[in-house]
Design a protein around this nucleic acid. Sequence first.
DNA 1: CGCCGCAGGCTTTTT
DNA 2: GCCTGCGGCG
Length: 724
Amino acid sequence: MRMTLADALMNLNPAQREAVTAPPGHILVLAGAGSGKTRVLVHRIAYLSEIERVDPWRILAVTFTNKAASEMRSRAESLLGGDGRSLWAGTFHGICHRMLRQHASHAGLPLNFQVLDQDDQLRVIKRVMKDLGLSDEELSARDVAFFINASKDEGKRPETLDVEGQPRRRALIDLYAAYERQTRSSGVIDFAEILLRAQEMLLTQPQILAHYQRRFAHLLVDEFQDTNTVQYAFVRVLAGEQAQVFAVGDDDQSIYGWRGAKVENVQSFTRDFPNVRTVRLEQNYRSTGNILAAANAVIARNTDRLGKNLWTDDKAGAAIEIFAGYNEVDEARFVVERIKSSIEADRRPSESAVLYRSNALSRLIEENLIARQIPYRVYGGLRFFERAEIKDALAYLRLLGNPNDDAAFERVVNTPPRGIGERTLETLRKHARSHGLPLSQAASAQSLAAELAGRARNALAAFLALIETLRADSKGQDLSAVALLAITQSGLREFYASSADAKSESRMENLDQLVSAAESYICPEEDSSAGMSDLDSFLAHAALEAGDGEAEAWEDCVQLMTMHSARGLEFPCVYIIGLEDGLFPSARSIDEPGRLAEERRLMYVGITRARQELVLTHAESRRIHGQEHFSPPSRFLSEIPTELVREIRPRLRVSKAFAAPHRMTLEEPASRFKLGQRLAHPSFGVGVLVSAMGAGERTQLLINFEKSGPKLLMANVAKLEEVA
DNA sequence: CGCCGCAGGCTTTTT
DNA sequence: GCCTGCGGCG
């Protein structure tokens, strides 16, 4: 039975209802964690459609991830029925990409332009740096990529950037310009370019802007705190004077500042748009009282918040557990043991999530889960369309659609190996550059032949012939047949089939999966109407939606992920590991108040993922990159009021937090010293006694020296003195 | 040209 | 500790 909208509205709380049924005008919804944000967005769409009688076709709903977009779409469809289908819901990139396809020539793009992903972009940048002789140690390709992307996110072109008298900056701007020339001539655009180009198109093509402004009466933007400068400008220009903007976000969950997101946009919104009505969603439906109180206490340390106080009707619930491990092994063992007993006590594996600051921390947890045969899933890592073999196959397909795509050409010209080496390629590149030609055109030029040795010439000709044959054979074939041709005729499949490498089997499987993916791919109506072939559409899909991570989502398994990727999710039991200063907050953020505040918001995100149980762990010593580190517990731990906390293994009170020991024979402290005590050594200086091993004469002391780091010393040999 | 071995590097991530 | 990328050698 389909619920009527009236019923649905009755089920909302007053704040939610206020947002959903707000009269015409701009709305800012400040939605706290677990306050029913998506629900409000979806109901707003239904309300506009059914009560305000707005045709769903005139509503644009924008999100950041494909997952969020498809969830919004399907929930809207279930509320609206068939009408929901005409709603335009997508990511910023998806929407801008669609506009560019629709008006490619007005955007200065070839009809068959392709999208470069991060990996492709980095390759192009390396190429450009080499060409300019700028592949210095001073400037890494990653730095350059960061600079270019950050500039584009800010809406800046090379000519609008100021050198500011800095040589390094001069070099970066020059590289940006050279990179632009290269991508333009190849007919490819990177992710940041999709947004910037669309934005520029709206600004320079009044008739196109007018077209979209006439169409869209309502813009709904999710995760508004994540918008960067260009995205904000895009919303502004598209809204114009006529459309109403419904912006939903949470400044306390802004965790993407490092990639250009501007929390300030949330404040700017109330300034730049007239008469914005602000609604706060402060009732949390997710977490117990204790968990929420902890989250509130932590985030309260941040200044410059828009201010919100989350509350809940729920009971206080269990205390928050804090576990102090001796080292990371100890920590992992504890976490997995606790998960195991919760499973034995009837929790399903999928009800537990282990969250961490950086991916490297998942390994030990994984090992322990495997050892105890508990199923798990790690989010993140390489996604389907990002795998090397898949990208190789896609590069062949890209060359079919656009022979000028140099990035694709470079990728597969010698993959699998066919005797076209660096020397040959260098000659080819030089030729291409001096004649202003794309690589594939230069490769077929008569004038090049003279410069190449016979063998190289033949190999190159064979490659060109291969692409030509492929193109001819795929005429009139359907997508999956073309994909199959590409991986067989190119020799890619054979290459992996005959490879002894352990990974080659899974590579073959992936290639086969690519064919199945092509088989089941349905070209969206709007793509074909924009004049895209099935192949172009498929390639765009591969670039814009790189596919899911490893395991199947439906499997009942423990969830492992970073706190960044956990935002928006919730779990009955949450474990946050690696809570040490230097790890979380990260050492790179600790000294900068702005960045520290973002780390704290990340902690807030982590805490608020938990519904019933929250377990926080840290280790006194941890191997990071093969090096032993002794870090104090995260400052965020001490920001949680002690009355909410139960320490699982109470730590000794010691002068310096990071000296806290345990697990050794505490009754009989090592010789004359006490753990946690400050000691002086003639050559190493002052340090803290962290741990002791062995007994009697062979007692060894682990002392963490302030200047020279941890050292293991014999207790009865080392000349140690107590320090007051 | 291609393979192998070693050195260096390394938050977070979507599109 | 693990992966990538580069350089040297066969």
